[in-house]
Amino acid sequence: MRVNIFAAMAAISAASAAAGEAGEVLLTVTGRVAEAPVELTRADLEALPQRSLITATTVTDGRPEFEGFLMRDLLEHLGAEGDSVVALALNDYRAEIPVSDFEDYDVLGALTMDGAQLSPRDKGPVWIVYPRDDHRELQDIRYDMRWVWQLVSLHVK
């Protein structure tokens, strides 16, 4: 899997100069989904219902507006059956997230921040964003560590 991801990263990197290209694979989903592995392009992700969310984060100032898809919409769309997902980032950061988080809260797979596409040179291409300002219990390090940025792969367990 490590090799697959590396390949995916390479693919992203290859097209990084043209980050907006629709054919480029942004996210690979493996594990308990209908037809694993699933490779999703920006067009695929943008085809999901788009939602916006304004929230403060622990690493930026102000309250940026994020736009993207709901994580639960993505999992439903892929027919995922599992209790948790392991989110893996471009920089090898990994965090296990219970699926119940996506059911209880409107957790976003953000593609843009303040109207600009998230770049791999910042937190892109995908940043898992929790509605931190709307729920006090989310203002906690145990949730902060699930805000995986530079998300490239999800493994459904």
Binding site: V59, G62, L90, S119, R121, D122, Q150
Partner: peptide, 14 residues
């Protein structure tokens, strides 16, 4: 890109 993203993070807010 990864090196720049880390530098970007260091240059942000807090």
């Amino acid at each position: 890109d990864l090196a720049v993203s880390r530098l970007t993070l260091l240059g942000q807010g807090p």
